[in-house]
């Protein structure tokens, strides 16, 4: 199964028309893509929960996909929205294990995928904000531990996490 954008557009159109089989294939491809999409930006034990939440959002909001437009930028907007929600949530993971940068599927669409990636969104933050969010919200360190590791004061860590997430929420649809 080739999950390129043209195929996904076709499957999504069929899904909007009530084709259950096409919808199942689309969701399976979307789930695989989402696992790659969130790599290194979410703790491993949270990954499946986040993927499932995005799939539920896709299902609830599938009518908002415009069949004339590319599929992945629509899916990426929903994925980013849910991811920022996850970062906002007050959770602390015990493990610091992140998904390794598993081989991404090289394809002619790679430049498009790069434009909608989470890394590109993260690049919009200041280095201090990105570091604070990575340490506290993704790797699960306490504010005190993050302060020790980064050299930022505890209050600065809190401010950078707060401002960084607020900025991420404001630029969800930004491509680069």
């Amino acid at each position: 199964m080739n999950g390129d954008d043209a195929t996904m557009m076709r499957l999504m159109r069929a899904a909007q028309n009530g084709d259950k089989q096409a919808y199942a294939v689309l969701l399976e491809q979307a789930a695989k893509w989402l696992r790659r999409y969130f790599r290194r930006r979410i703790a491993l034990e949270k990954l499946d929960d986040l993927v499932q939440e995005v799939l539920l959002s896709v299902h609830a909001k599938r009518s908002t996909y415009d069949p004339d437009r590319p599929f992945y930028p629509w899916l990426a907007a929903i994925a980013r929205y849910r991811w920022v929600d996850y970062l906002r949530a007050e959770y602390r993971t015990q493990t610091q294990e992140l998904l390794e940068d598993t081989a991404s599927e090289e394809s002619a669409e790679e430049p498009v995928m790069a434009r909608i990636s989470l890394d590109r969104l993260f690049d919009q933050l200041s280095p201090a904000q990105a570091e604070a969010i990575e340490l506290v919200k993704i790797e699960g360190y306490s504010v005190a531990e993050a302060s020790e590791r980064s050299g930022q004061s505890q209050s600065l860590i809190k401010v950078n996490v707060h401002r960084g997430i607020r900025k991420l929420a404001a630029i969800i649809e930004k491509a680069s």
Binding site: T64, P73, W74, A77, I78, R80, R115, I116, E173, K174
Partner: peptide
């Protein structure tokens, strides 16, 4: 109402 990464508004 229809989200899309790459839209500036």
């Amino acid at each position: 109402a229809s989200p899309h990464v790459g839209t500036g508004h």
